[in-house]
């Protein structure tokens, strides 16, 4: 039995006598759609391509509304599908809010681009998508599951060099409102992604502000994946930046235990 089928069965479990008034087709569609939402971009939520023409945005929203607007099912017994329907439709509305206005859409797009290309941005320049590159990224993202963010994850996984991260940090300072916000949003959409959480933590640390926020993301990364020296190291560096020496030492020691070779960790610990 697939995950979707299991979920459909759970949600259709008769809590009361009344039967579920939702066609089997819609049950399947709803569950399958809901599954794409936590990982997907606003474009995924509306079933659109990144470069969709502005007039397509409203059409797509209209289509989604016809399918999932809660009023279409008013007064019906939807059982466990009801909260799902509300959740799905809310996500669609939020995506539409962002994409329908040219300015907020451009800001969002910049964030997505920055999140994708930050890792390979040449030193001293703002990350800017070369048309070709953006195109190939998009097609790869589609292959990876319709999500630009899953592409981001793949890139992050491949290029973990400190140099790239330093460039990313620079880019973040330059475009703090756009790209960092998009990255944080990406991390919120993928709460189970340790690498993304760690990346966000490092980016925030690089700005030197909101260290508590950085710490929460770093701790999330550690909680999700306890055996990564880098994550512990990030927690330690955040504590150190906030002047909390004891927790900083503890975290850095833990990191060194996992990766005794790392000279930078040792240096950071020595400083304390």
């Amino acid at each position: 039995m697939s995950t979707d089928e299991r979920e459909i069965q759970e949600r259709a479990e008769p809590g009361d006598e009344r039967p579920i008034e939702l066609s089997a087709e819609l049950q399947r569609e709803l569950v399958a759609f809901a599954r794409t939402l936590p990982v997907g971009s606003h474009y995924v939520a509306l079933g659109l391509e990144r470069g969709a023409a502005p007039e397509r945005i409203r059409e797509a929203f209209s289509e989604r509304s016809r399918r999932f607007h809660p009023d279409r099912f008013f007064g019906r017994n939807l059982g466990g599908f009801e909260p799902l329907l509300h959740q799905v439709y809310k996500r669609v509305v939020v995506a539409y809010e962002v994409l329908r206005q040219p300015e907020s859409r451009a800001r969002y797009d910049r964030g997505l681009d920055a999140a994708q290309l930050r890792q390979v941005a040449p030193s001293g320049t703002r990350p800017r998508p070369a048309p070709e590159r953006a195109g190939s990224l998009r097609s790869r993202a589609r292959r990876l599951g319709n999500s630009v963010l899953s592409d981001l994850r793949a890139r992050v996984g491949r290029s973990r060099s400190r140099r790239a991260r330093a460039h990313a940090a620079e880019a973040t300072r330059e475009d703090a409102s756009g790209s960092l916000a998009a990255l944080i949003e990406a991390a919120e959409l993928r709460p189970d992604d340790s690498e993304l959480a760690a990346l966000v933590a490092e980016q925030i640390l690089a700005t030197g502000r909101q260290l508590d926020r950085a710490r929460r993301f770093a701790e999330r990364a550690v909680a999700l994946e306890g055996n990564c020296a880098r994550y512990h190291g990030t927690v330690g560096r955040i504590h150190a930046a906030a002047g909390r020496r004891e927790p900083a030492r503890r975290a850095l020691r833990e990191a060194l235990e996992l990766d005794p070779e790392d000279a930078e960790l040792a240096k950071a610990l020595e400083k304390l």
Partner: peptide, 13 residues
């Protein structure tokens, strides 16, 4: 009437 009958018609947003 649209709500009570789940009728087709413009959805309000």
């Amino acid at each position: 009437s649209m709500l009570a009958e789940n009728a087709e018609g413009p959805l309000l947003v």
